[in-house]
């Protein structure tokens, strides 16, 4: 990409360059502006219960790896790379905790809204076997217990866990294999 045509749409590249020099005020503004962007990014890609964790984890990663941003290049591409890496990371870690049920406070009572907000996630889940996507939807998006999901789908409780684990791991692999996620 030609450096001369790089656009700094939100001015974030300049803010990050200042942060790299140790300037606190631009850095605070950058983080405050990145937070809603990340909330939207993960809101479309993860179950609602995982979004806040993903946002905070990504902000910490942005902080720890801020020296890897090259101010001569677009900040958006750098940010997208970090966010996508953390998205895959969250899917992997969720697959390792397949049996965890949502805490009551995080289970969304409004199922419809929860499901439709995670559009990119829905698109991905369509590529899974129904046995996997059904239980991920029930347990991770709608907050049902493993037993309830088992009763609803006719799978045994242990099969529900296996299918959540495999399905989420597969999602992580699919995302990792894609060259560009919107």
């Amino acid at each position: 990409m030609d450096i001369a045509v790089v656009q700094d749409r939100h001015g974030w590249g300049a803010l990050m360059a200042a942060a790299q020099r140790g300037e606190a005020a631009p850095y605070r503004r950058l983080l405050a502006e990145l937070r809603p962007w990340l909330l939207r990014y993960f809101g479309r890609r993860l179950p609602p219960s995982m979004v806040e964790d993903a946002v905070q984890d990504t902000m910490i990663a942005i902080h720890a790896k801020r020296h890897t941003y090259d101010p001569a290049r677009p900040f958006d591409a750098w940010l997208a790379g970090v966010a996508r890496y953390k998205w895959i990371d969250q899917l992997r870690s969720a697959s390792r905790h397949a049996a965890d049920e949502l805490p009551e406070t995080l289970a969304t009572p409004d199922h419809e809204a929860a499901v439709t907000s995670a559009t990119a996630l829905e698109r991905l889940m369509a590529t899974l076997k129904p046995a996997q996507s059904d239980v991920i939807r029930l347990v991770k998006l709608e907050g049902l217990s493993i037993e309830d999901a088992a009763a609803r789908t006719g799978q045994s409780a242990s099969l529900v866990k296996v299918n959540i684990h495999r399905g989420l791991a597969r999602l992580a692999n699919i995302v990792e294999g894609q060259n560009d996620a919107d």
Partner: peptide, 8 residues
């Protein structure tokens, strides 16, 4: 090692 490298 650069997160933006993938898009290059």
């Amino acid at each position: 090692l650069d997160p933006a490298a993938n898009s290059r």
